[in-house]
Amino acid sequence: MSDLKGFNMDIYFREEYAKIYELNGEGKTTIFTWEGELGKVRYIFLKREINLLKEKYYDIITPYGYGGPQFFPKEHKNLRDLIFKFKEHFEDYCSKNRIISEFIRFHPLLKNHSLMEIYMNIINIGDTINLFLSSEDDIMLNMKKSSRYSIRKAVEKGMKVERDNSDKSWNNFIDLYYQTMNRNQAKEYYYFSKTYFGNIRSLLKERAQIFNVVYENKVISSMLVLVGEQFIHSHLLGIASEYRKERFGRFFDYSIALWGLRRGCKHYHLGGGYGGREDSIFKYKKSLAKNGRLSFYVGNKVHNKKVYDELSKIHEKNNPEVTGKNLDYFPLYRR
């Protein structure tokens, strides 16, 4: 793996995390680095081949989750100039490497979208929720009263939350996850394969943790939590069908938050609603952190408009059903 010294290595910026999605067939893990008198830049992404023309072209995207370039100026006053240097060098890199377009899911906690407004088109697509892990009292006080009540009731019922990375626990999590996807009629992409989960486990090791809710001597829910240096992230969740109406969710997240606090982490990022909407999932998460709302941004950039437009036209010709639809999708030739 690359030398990570000097970089903020939240889980999403680690090479082994991107490798999971390379092995999932989503592109080649690529790291662009630049260093000069102003500072240094590191940018990890997936490079995807485009198979619509005889010539080879590519586009790039951050892996599932969050990402973007990391800027480390030698002095804070140099930051803007460093970003301009990145722009100059990376645009040249994209031209030489036949990269047509670029898409970034920015990190809500790091707010790194603000660094890229001089470089690409930035779009706010919704909000996410974060629990600040300052103290046990503050975690509780930041919740709505109904959430605190729900936690007390779960404790009274005898529910427990256990961290368990055994083979049995991972297999049980995967089964519950598939149950949940079936019940929610999820999109095909979210039916991650068992190989995908195996790669998470083998590549991330202790940075991938399984937490279980145990009730009536049975695991009724499991969550895969990703662990960075300062942040922990709720990644994927599975719930047993027969227990989905039990009110244990707030107790589950609260227990994971306490684990993160004791580990020395500063934030537990819960994510947002489905597709960035303020739906029931979002409202549930908000009930856990009244002051934890964060904006989620994405960015897109066309590096070669002529070829981008040509690819989009070919894609429409080959798939007439997409014509005039999802015009805000990026890139258009992958609708």
Rank of each mutant, 00 (worst) to 15 (best):
I118Y: 14
P73K: 03
D81I: 02
I100D: 10
E117I: 15
F90A: 10
H113W: 13
Q70M: 10
L110N: 13
E91C: 09
R80N: 13
K74H: 09
I100P: 12
K87N: 10
F86V: 05
E102F: 04
R98D: 10
N124L: 12
E75N: 09
S101C: 12
F106R: 01
F86Q: 05
D81N: 11
I122H: 00
Y93T: 00
S101V: 09
R105S: 06
Y119W: 02
F103H: 03
I125Q: 03
F84I: 11
E91L: 11
Y93G: 03
I122G: 01
E117Y: 14
K85S: 15
D81V: 00
I100C: 12
E117P: 10
H89V: 03
N78K: 13
F84P: 02
I104A: 05
I123W: 07
K111F: 05
M120W: 01
S101M: 10
S114I: 13
H107M: 00
H89W: 01
L110Y: 15
S114R: 14
L109G: 09
K96N: 14
F71Y: 05
H89P: 00
E102A: 04
I122E: 01
H76L: 13
P73I: 01
L79A: 07
F84V: 08
I104G: 03
D127F: 06
L115W: 10
E75L: 06
S95V: 00
N97F: 06
K87Q: 06
I99F: 05
H113S: 12
M120E: 09
L82Q: 05
K96H: 13
F72C: 03
N112S: 08
I125D: 04
Q70W: 01
R80L: 10
I99L: 03
E117W: 12
K85N: 14
R80M: 09
S95M: 03
P73G: 02
E117A: 13
I104R: 02
D92M: 14
I123F: 10
S95E: 07
P73V: 00
D92K: 15
K85R: 14
R98M: 07
H76Y: 13
H107A: 01
N124S: 11
H76R: 13
I122V: 09
D81F: 09
F103R: 01
